[in-house]
């Protein structure tokens, strides 16, 4: 088996976050809630976001859900990176992550941990797994109400 390829994809950080996530759960209070779903594989994610009083800065992001190592690690690393970011910064990071999945960009030093997801770009069928949580966060942040109807479908 080409374990080298696999080690690129499944970096230690990804496996650790899959097994021992740090940001699983629900924020308190819940200022935004959004569900995401990958219909083709059944992965689900439920994001909760706690915003500051002005509603323009993320205090906390938590996730619940079920999915593969790539999907779960992506959610955990995203939740970590989002703490304290302005909503505007967060939307920019979501775009950057999507670009990174196309092999076109990477995160600066401050967010270098997110770059462990770069290996996913070499496995096109798995990009959906990595981006589900990011699409879901975008929908949560762009929603004007705490609980938008429906869910984000990553198809």
């Amino acid at each position: 088996m080409s374990l080298d390829n696999l080690r690129d994809l499944y970096q230690q950080v990804i496996l650790e976050r899959y097994k021992k996530p740090r940001y699983r759960g629900k924020t308190d209070p819940v200022d935004r809630y959004q569900k995401g779903h990958n219909p083709s594989c059944g992965d689900t994610i439920e994001l909760t976001v706690h915003l500051n009083e002005a509603g323009d800065r993320i205090e906390d992001v938590r996730f619940e859900g079920e999915g593969c190592a790539i999907a779960m690690a992506s959610a955990d690393l995203m939740a970590e990176a989002m703490r304290g970011r302005s909503v505007e910064e967060a939307l920019g990071m979501i775009q950057r992550f999507q670009n990174m999945m196309q092999g076109k960009d990477e995160f600066p030093h401050e967010f270098r941990k997110l770059n462990v997801m770069q290996g996913v770009s070499q496995f096109p069928v798995r990009i959906k797994c990595a981006t589900l949580t990011w699409h879901t966060l975008r929908a949560a942040l762009e929603a004007a109400t705490p609980q938008p109807a429906g869910f984000v479908s990553n198809e």
């Binding site: 088996m1 390829n5 696999l6 594989c41 593969c68 190592a69 790539i70 798995r126």
Partner: peptide, 19 residues
């Protein structure tokens, strides 16, 4: 997870379904 398993097996040339 079955998806991770399928990716890993694919590296060994083995095609299985996951989902």
């Amino acid at each position: 997870h079955p998806h991770d398993l399928s990716t890993i097996l694919d590296q060994a040339g083995v095609a299985i379904r996951a989902g």
